[in-house]
Amino acid sequence: MRIFFTLCLLFISLCVKAQDIPEVTVKNLAGDDISTSEFKNSKDIKVISFWATWCVPCINELDAISEIYQDWQDETNVEVIAISTDDARTRRRVKPLINGKDWEFKIYVDENQDLKRALNINILPYVIIVKDGKIIHTRTGYTPGSEEELFEIVKQHTD
């Protein structure tokens, strides 16, 4: 136990720098493999939200972003990517749900949670902001209004 906490303290005291997004394969809605290295290809800032069809705050967050997404894009070219972590029980619900909700985001599926694990994501929703393949901001949980904070960060980093 003591060793465990010594280790933890040690890590918290380490110098922290912007991380590269790890290279993991996810799937698009057609079932094709997509490597996360593709997220690095464009200069535009990407807001990547990890969600699930059964996670109410995740849906609240994506609904809220969806309503102002057009304004975001007009101002900054930001791209929102919603990565579903739904497993076999609920994965089939992803496609009808995003269409039913009229979301314009790019959608990927991380069915056995390889990317979620690689990023050490413990709870949903979880948002990362990526610029040039580097993670420049992370945030967990959603409360109404936090989508505005996200956009402030996007604007700060827009050239």
């Binding site: 089939r92 619900r93 496609k95 009808p96 749900l97 995003i98 269409n99 039913g100 009229d102």
Partner: peptide, 14 residues
Amino acid sequence: NTGFSKKGFGLDAT
């Protein structure tokens, strides 16, 4: 499993 979805509507059956 089968489904049909378009903008504003989604249907899925398993």
